[in-house]
Nucleic acid binder design. Sequence first.
DNA 1: CTATGAAACGGAAACGTTTCGTTATGAAGA
DNA 2: TCTTCATAACGAAACGTTTCCGTTTCATAG
Lengths: 339, 339
Amino acid sequence: MASTIKDIAKMTGLGLATISKYLNGGNVRPNNKRLIEDAVRDLRFVPNEFARSLKTRLSRTVGVVIPELGNQFITSIITTMEDILRKLDYAVIVCDCRTDPRREKEAVTFLMHKRVDGLINMPTDSTGEHLKPALDAGIPIVLVDRILKSLSGRVSAVVVDNVEAAEKATRFLLESGHEEIGLILGNEGIYTTQKRREGFLNACAEFSLKPGEEMIRFSDYTLEGGYAQMKALLSLPKPLTAVFVTNYEMTLGAMIALNEAALKVPDDISVIGFDKLDLFGAMYPHLTLVKQPQNAIGECVAKLLLGLLSNGSALPLHQIITLPTQLCEGDSVRKLKRI
Amino acid sequence: MASTIKDIAKMTGLGLATISKYLNGGNVRPNNKRLIEDAVRDLRFVPNEFARSLKTRLSRTVGVVIPELGNQFITSIITTMEDILRKLDYAVIVCDCRTDPRREKEAVTFLMHKRVDGLINMPTDSTGEHLKPALDAGIPIVLVDRILKSLSGRVSAVVVDNVEAAEKATRFLLESGHEEIGLILGNEGIYTTQKRREGFLNACAEFSLKPGEEMIRFSDYTLEGGYAQMKALLSLPKPLTAVFVTNYEMTLGAMIALNEAALKVPDDISVIGFDKLDLFGAMYPHLTLVKQPQNAIGECVAKLLLGLLSNGSALPLHQIITLPTQLCEGDSVRKLKRI
DNA sequence: CTATGAAACGGAAACGTTTCGTTATGAAGA
DNA sequence: TCTTCATAACGAAACGTTTCCGTTTCATAG
């Protein structure tokens, strides 16, 4: 049977309160400090987190709800967060909701039952309904990558400047003389999808271009989706000269579709992809890419949540942090005209 | 303030024990059942897991220690496991140890402090030292993908038949007439690496071939590693006619290196890769692949652990489950001779 | 030496369950 | 109507912490 604080009390002759106090960083007389430390070592004492949580109402656990674990962007963020949180003794419970709002809601309920201290969510349900119960319960929430208008001011968030990212990429294509540009987006309702579409359209408008609806394809941020939409784009009557794909997995899928169609990049078609510079940057031809600061995002999310968790009962100061992206030039975009 | 079982007692006039019993699936009189259900609904009662855990000494939480979250094979297994476990109300705490034995040991300690009911581990430390404390504490352990000899009989495990997988792949190359075959393996000490090497050598021996040490490259199961080792193989004085790469990420890396070297598959060099049929299978040329049953592995691990968790204090019947792999033929292997 | 006050100490009451051992209930059989 | 007996209900004692708040300790000043 594991030893308890009572065993330490018995062994040292001290009171429970004193020992508890010391274990939580309080001051005790040097002599007692030594006594306690010895006893802890001899008895291999490990505090019972259950009892501690029961009293403090804190689990030192945070829940993470994501649409999909098998996604490079997401796992890289989780890895960074988990690292920071675990160092501060927070456990991370990951719930993959498979991009299904019903499952997402279930995940939030589940995590509330597990009494997580905080919640990190890359939301699937863009209404934000799923988070209401957590909000009502006063659980601090940090959104990642996507903002929910309906929760404005009540949650923190870390996103990238999607509009600007898409503008930069599209502008780069336009300035290179491309006018028939395909766009492969993620799921229609989702924040990043909308923002990236917006940026794309902004840039087009700057060049007095109004791309047809058939050039703008919604997909689902998966390899298969990118593959299918690239195929669809290739079967349009009017051939494209360029395509902009808006996440890593879809970029892979699109590249596969281009390979299958025996189209050469950039000779037959120009491509701008997304994320994972190490992979695409190494490919031949080096892809021109929009790069998101994945580590910074993870770090930011973790710090933000830790801030909310530690500020106790004070009014939570929710903030939205927008990080910049970078357009990394490769040689997958053909210059149709001198700039 | 959240309501407790006491509030329900007050509202229904029943005793604590009766309510607790009912909530845990016990029988109560139909009339009382109705009373309790009504009260639970009205008071929005949610059992306090802290108190429950304190009494039962069970957290309904399992820990998962892995070498690397950003790895397709691993995340696909975790997704499957998490799904099954969460349905049964088990939370999954994921710890990424970055293929670092020190961090791995820390992760096990951390999870023990969090008092997980069980442990799932894809071990980095091949001595198994890191799991000893958990073993001593009587925490059920299931290993994934890798077996630790030193823990034989004390833990369960789910692996694939790595020797056979490598034999099949290598034999396929040999039967196609290849004799200069490169092999790209993972980290040297690791179980799968050793087994896949063994299978490779077995097949070579069948054909009375003794590949030089320089043809067998150890790496680290990452894209960068596969890329670097493919480069190294290409710079050997004697050119290869084929290469066998033994995981997904390294296969990607190797393909990039081949692209960069402007080598055509299978004309200039034949390739057999690993995993992720959807991606490589769709690529042109379709890669010939060793496919591991990732879903089955995840399912098996979850079921095995659940079995250990539910058999209570009975002697744990540890088993090692070996699942078969499949060689999926594409057109990345050139026939140098008629079979 | 005593008075003083800050710092350390410790007893006891929570926190919200589960469970043990006992008692109450009520339907069936005598 | 009275036993009998299986079943359900119950009171109280845990589980191992933290914390409130009254008490003790002890260094320093007087």
